[in-house]
Design a protein around this nucleic acid. Structure first.
Length: 448
DNA sequence: CTTATATTCCG
DNA sequence: GGAATATAA
């Protein structure tokens, strides 16, 4: 009987720079590339139509990549640990390789796998540097288990010598083992403007980004209408791209834009190391400000539906619904609006983002929301972004607003940001006066 | 070397 | 104000 190893794919749906796949191929003659759609994964948010659609395309693409190498993707449905154990029994595999995760769900999965595989005489091998460029915990301040401030983290992060990215394997021999039906690619309720899923699409986008877009990233990344960002976030979330390879290639390319872009990837690692050390930060305040958030379902619904009366906020919320994606600058401004101006709980916003974002990621989403809510790692927890100032600075001619709110297009220039100043505009009145929101927030937080 | 304190800096 | 680090004891 030939030797068999299993690679359990999770948030690393690619063949390039995939240490678990490489290790499995080195260890055994035949390898089972396995993906399990389990209830825990469903609960963790995969049921959101946008990510489910992207996932279906990504799995189809991964299967195609493996078939081009003589293999195929084996998919199963059911509790992930049970399914892995079943495949071990069916194939006589001696090793299971998996990427190290950071969420509570991933850590629990790893623990159960280790225990139950051990009982079957099968080893679990966990690989670092797959989900993030720098492993959570690889750099720490003296006497603490993680960094709580980004800049000191970045200084250490930049010094870490990471391995060289691995190429894709030439051949993958897969033993005969049963597989579930592929996921349907047409998902009801998915946004119309979703990007295509899969490693191939991700690598094409990365190539284009490195050869052109990244050059002006430092100057253009905040321009809402110009859309000068990489849009690689969904591919990073599903692991269609290796963050380590992206960092490596961006650094090789060099320049001011590349440096600014790599810094954003360090933010991604920063949030992952925070969540790894403090799993509760996915739902509880990282550093509580003892907020007693207002509850107002009418205002929350207006925010979700892009009907706050502030065009820059509403445009962003409509982009989210239509594309399953939102410009990063817009994410900052709408989250400031929800948490600081309306003074509504950050979890309301984080949940809505996870319902729609194709890149929706527990570490990045929850900790960025906490950052803006002032309950996270921001060293200035009372910072408030004024939506009008943001609009004038990052959408000076209103091109972004015009794209998403065509009903306001007749308002010239920057006046589009203040439709309440014109007569007879078919648009909701502002949900709240900015000065009232600010006063309310200051009273609640008490200081600064 | 450990621990206390000063200094710097925060998207 | 507090986190990280440099410096002193």
């Amino acid at each position: 009987m030939t030797s068999v190893a299993i690679v359990l794919f999770t948030s690393d749906l690619r063949v390039h720079d995939h240490p678990p796949l490489r290790a499995a191929l080195d260890a055994a003659e035949r390898v089972v590339p396995l993906f399990v759609l389990d209830d825990g994964v469903r609960r963790a948010g995969f049921t959101a139509p946008n990510r489910l659609a992207f996932l279906a395309e990504t799995l189809a693409d991964l299967d195609a990549s493996l078939r081009a190498r003589g293999g195929r993707l084996v998919t199963r449905e059911g509790p992930v640990v049970d399914e892995v154990c079943a495949v071990v029994r069916e194939t006589g595999a001696r090793e299971v390789h998996v990427a190290a995760g950071v969420s509570r769900y991933a850590l629990a999965r790893e623990e159960r796998l280790r225990r139950e595989l051990g009982a079957q005489g099968c080893a679990l091998r966990v690989h670092d540097g797959v989900i993030t460029a720098v492993t959570p915990g690889a750099v720490t301040p003296d006497g603490r288990d993680h960094f709580a401030v980004f800049t000191p983290y970045l200084r250490q992060w930049e010094k870490v010598r990471t391995r060289s990215p691995l190429g894709a394997p030439r051949r993958v021999e897969v033993p005969d083992v049963g597989s579930a039906k592929p996921l349907p690619e047409n998902v009801p309720g998915a946004s119309a403007g979703l990007p295509s899923g899969g490693e191939r699409a991700g690598r094409e986008r990365l190539d284009r980004w490195l050869s052109s877009g990244i050059r002006d990233y430092a100057e253009r990344h905040d321009d809402l209408a110009g859309d000068g960002t990489s849009r690689l976030s969904p591919y990073l979330h599903f692991g269609c791209l290796s963050p380590l390879e992206v960092v490596h290639r961006a650094r090789t390319r060099g320049g001011e834009g590349a440096e600014a872009f790599v810094r954003q990837l360090a933010w991604r690692d920063f949030h992952h190391q925070t969540l790894h050390a403090r799993p509760s930060a996915a739902h509880a305040d990282y550093r509580t400000q003892h907020d007693r958030w207002r509850t107002d379902e009418r205002e929350a619904a207006a925010w979700r539906d892009g009907e706050t009366g502030y065009p820059i906020v509403d445009a962003a919320m409509r982009q989210l619904r239509h594309e399953g994606w939102m410009h990063n600058r817009a994410r900052l401004l709408v989250s400031s609006f929800l948490t600081k101006t309306l003074y509504l709980d950050w979890r309301i916003g984080a949940r809505h983002f996870l319902d729609l974002l194709v890149d929706g990621d527990v570490a990045n989403n929850q900790l960025n929301w906490q950052w803006m809510a002032g309950t996270g790692t921001d060293t200035r927890p009372n910072r408030v972004l004024n939506p009008l100032t943001q609009a004038r600075r990052f959408d000076p001619d209103g091109a972004y607003v015009r794209r998403w709110l065509p009903e306001l297009d007749f308002l010239p220039g920057r006046s589009i940001h203040e439709p309440w100043k014109a007569d007879g505009v078919p648009y909701p009145a502002p949900l709240v006066e900015l000065s009232d929101g600010l006063a309310r927030f200051k009273a609640a937080r008490g200081k600064d």
